[in-house]
Each structure stands twice: as C-alpha cells, then as structure tokens.
Amino acid sequence: MNPDGIDTPTAQPSWNTRVKDTIRSLERDAELMLRVRDGDQASFGLLLERHRGSVIHFLYRMVQSRAVAEELAQEVFLRVYRSRSSYEPSAKFTTWLFRIATHLGLNSIRDGRKESRQESLDQETSEGTVRQVADGAPNVEQELVYEVKLREVRQAIESLPAKQRAAVLMHKYDELEYAEIASVLSCSESAVKSLLFRAYEHLRLRLAHLA
C-alpha cells in the first residue's frame, strides 16, 4: 500500500514470468507433438518453426560448419517425424530433440565430417548478411579485432572434448539446466557438473585474456 493508502500491485519478478512462459511453451510442444502422432502434419510444421533455429545453432557450434549443421538438423527432424507414432510426453520435447541432435553431432565429430572452418570476409556473416567493410581505419580495425576474437572463441570451443563441448553449448546458448543436460547426455547430474566445470576451466585459460 502506497502513502496515499491505495493498493498498488507489486511488480512480479521477471524470472517468474519467464518460468510461466517456459511451462506454457513446454505444454505447447507436447500438445503439438501429440497432434503429429495423430497424423497432423501442420503441427509438425509448427514444431519445426519453433525449434529449427535452436537445433541448427547448436549443431553449427558443435561441428562448426553451416552446411553440415543444416544437413544434420534435417536428419534430427526427420527422426522426430519417424518416431511420431511412439511419442509419449513423459519427457520434455526439447530434451528429446537435443538428445537426437547431440547424438548426431557427436557422431559427426567422431566421423570427422567438417568443411572449412574459416569464414572469409567475403562470405556471409552468421547473421546471413554479407559483411561490408567500410573505408576508414577504425572500422577495419574493429572488424579485425572482432574476427580474431571470434576465431579464438571458435577454436577454444573446438578444442574441448566432444561431450564437454556439447554440455557447454547446451548450458550457455540453450540455457538448459544441469538436470536436462544430464538427460540429454544420458548421465548423472554430477557428471554433467564435472563436464561443465572442467570445460569452463579450460575456456578460462584460453579466453580470459579477451576481457
């Protein structure tokens, strides 16, 4: 109650809203997948739209090749579709999705399917637009600094063992909790923490100077 005696609603913390949104989102995924199980291909299209980005980005950072990442991502969704008749909403849809993606990503790394890792300035940027380098020393310098930083980050991630790499990517970019990562990697939560802390220790040694 404010000094004028009027009740004003207290602002909800943002994390509360995020939690509710997350729950709604998870329920929506399960609902859509159940419809796919019943033969509704349009619902599969909606699931594709909701999750293709995160799957492709995860696989891109795993294998560091756009073409391979998209090919693997297609395979992920193909496998989801193939398994539609046996789907049960016992686990989160995203856990299942990332389990398939991680499995394919780890296989790809093991099989050594890679294309050129280096992106030249003439190629598309990760935002999909061709990078324009304007005349003028400061912009060129900033671009070069950025390129060096990006290269170091990519190389640092690539230097991680495959499972540590997958754990870090899911933790950092997909914001999965330890329990979910454990479910994806089919290991215990303590094993995931061990993977992550070793990975971050390695990354601190390689990237702390970039601060």
Partner: peptide
C-alpha cells in the same frame, strides 16, 4: 568466468536457410 561468458556471447548464431523446412 565473466570474461569467458562475455567472449562466448560474441559468437553469433547463423541465419537458417530459407528453404530448410
């Protein structure tokens, strides 16, 4: 650790191919 987090933030996502679906 914060430097690592910030460095990882610098790695942007790629654009998805328009014909992916």
């Amino acid at each position: 650790q914060r430097a690592v987090w910030s460095a990882l933030d610098a790695w942007p996502s790629i654009a998805v191919s328009p014909n992916f679906d």
